[in-house]
Write a protein that binds this DNA or RNA. Structure first.
Length: 107
DNA sequence: AGACCCGGACGCG
DNA sequence: CGCGTCCGGGTCT
């Protein structure tokens, strides 16, 4: 079931193009929410994957964050591969080029 | 009402 | 840097 909050998150995420990423915190601010964790939950249940690019959302400390509800294992590797195919690389478990993080318009 | 969750900020060693 | 801890808020049961 998709809620108004989830739709807001997905809509904001659509502004992130291929080759760039954003963070849970950034998304949260974009929709006027102070819980980045709530955003993570919404992405986890993203019914419109991959048209809503939930793989382009990482942690604000440049760690990859999770994917499909998991923070490690095959799911996470799939996320890293998707990003790699878009030119976004990770090294030593961290985003290689932090300047690829996109800031979103405030709420 | 309580528990859960793909985070974040802060404090400490 | 790598913990531990607390906070947060939307959703599910």
């Amino acid at each position: 079931m998709t809620t108004p909050f989830e739709r807001k998150v997905y809509a904001a995420l659509l502004h992130v193009p291929c080759g760039r990423v954003t963070t849970y915190a950034e998304l949260a601010r974009a929709v006027g929410c102070r819980s980045s964790r709530a955003v993570g939950q919404a992405l986890k249940r993203n019914p419109f994957a991959p048209v809503v690019p939930c793989h382009r959302v990482i942690s604000s400390d440049f760690a990859p964050g999770g994917f499909r509800g998991r923070m490690r294992g095959p799911a996470l590797r799939a996320k890293l591969l998707l990003l790699k195919s878009e030119g976004v690389l990770f090294r030593r478990g961290r985003l290689a080029e932090p300047e690829r993080v996109m800031s979103l318009p405030r709420f």
